[in-house]
Amino acid sequence: MTLMVLLGIGVLLVLMVAEMPLYGDVTAPAHQGVMQKYLRDSARDTGAINTIAAIIIDYRAYDTLGEATVLFVAVIAVTAAFYGGYEHE
């Protein structure tokens, strides 16, 4: 049953792959959006020549704050799981 469902999903996804924009194509829609500005301006805007660093800690710094928070949550959650409860059987 599960296998059939997964197979169905698989066929759908494979069909979808065939429909996707071509891999590595510079004209693909994914490269028309925000990329150009980042590559053009990041050094001037942020002073970092690693564009990825410029994106993660400047343009999209809010995400990275969230990311750091996720790690924080993980630590707190592990602490909570190990030491939180009263009941240890």
Binding site: A43, D45, I57, D58, L65
Partner: peptide, 26 residues
């Protein structure tokens, strides 16, 4: 919130002590 340019000294691109907030936060 989280403004870099104009708040932190961004320095000269390519140098170690550049890019203001990015280095600090890293």
């Amino acid at each position: 919130f989280l403004t870099n340019q104009g708040v932190f000294p961004t320095g000269e691109p390519g140098r170690l002590w550049s890019s203001g907030m990015i280095l600090l936060v890293t």
